[in-house]
Simulated scan of single mutants.
Amino acid sequence: MKRSERYEAVLRHFAEVSPHVTTELEFGSVFQLLVATVLSAQCTDKRVNQVTPELFRHYPDAAAMAEADPEDVLSFISSISYPNSKAKHLVELSVAIQEKFGGKVPSALDDLTSLPGVGRKTANVLLAVAFSKAAMPVDTHVYRVSHRMGLVPKSAATPLAVERCLTKNIPEALLADAHHWLLLHGRYVCTSRKPHCEKCPFKGFCPKIMDFKGY
């Protein structure tokens, strides 16, 4: 099966069964989405959603969080992975938003990645979800699923390489949705350990199921 045919089959299936998808993170503003996405790095959305309501009650926007002490922020996110560094980054990025961007979260990739603690994946989430731009955030789920299903070559060995390959092969209008489709497929079906191949709608052509040895 040609790679182009894989893309066609995968995108057609998801468009039919899950036409309307978005992040599972809970937020009430662009700033809150940014905070939740930073917290979600190497942490589950479920856990993030458990701590953000109280965090946002005390620090609803960049202006409020910019005035906070990292230790105070830490008290709300202590159950999150890497809480100390994330608390520091949240305060620092809030200060940067206030001082450099007039209190508003920027909508350009370079501006977003200039914020402390904001990498390319986090920036792309903001572009796709908050600003409705064509972007492909590549997290561990998207990276794993893309390789397992043969959507990208083995040589695409970095998140950026996977992002570029997916962006090249997925229509711009579907990029943001495709990110969520691949992410959720990896979260609930094509899991890292013991993938549920028997439930996979792509088992007829998935290289992983067909004795693919790369992952």
Rank of each mutant, 00 (worst) to 15 (best):
M136L: 10
Y215S: 07
K203E: 04
T23W: 01
L182D: 05
G119N: 02
H20V: 14
E24F: 03
N84Y: 07
C165D: 08
K194I: 00
E92W: 06
S114A: 15
H185R: 03
T140Y: 05
S94D: 11
H147N: 12
Y215C: 11
D177R: 13
S40V: 08
T37L: 09
A176P: 05
E71V: 07
K133A: 02
L55V: 14
T122H: 11
L175G: 00
M65C: 14
R3V: 15
T167W: 01
P70S: 03
A176K: 00
T113K: 08
V152N: 10
L115G: 07
D111K: 01
V91R: 13
L115S: 11
F31S: 13
F205G: 06
S155W: 06
E92D: 14
F202V: 13
H141L: 01
T167L: 07
V73E: 07
H196G: 05
A66M: 12
R148N: 01
L166V: 03
V142N: 12
P70L: 13
R144M: 05
H147L: 12
D110I: 00
M149N: 08
L93G: 05
V118I: 15
L25A: 10
C206W: 08
P137M: 07
H89M: 10
V38Y: 04
V105D: 09
L151Y: 09
I209V: 15
R12I: 02
A68K: 05
S81A: 14
P195W: 06
H13Q: 03
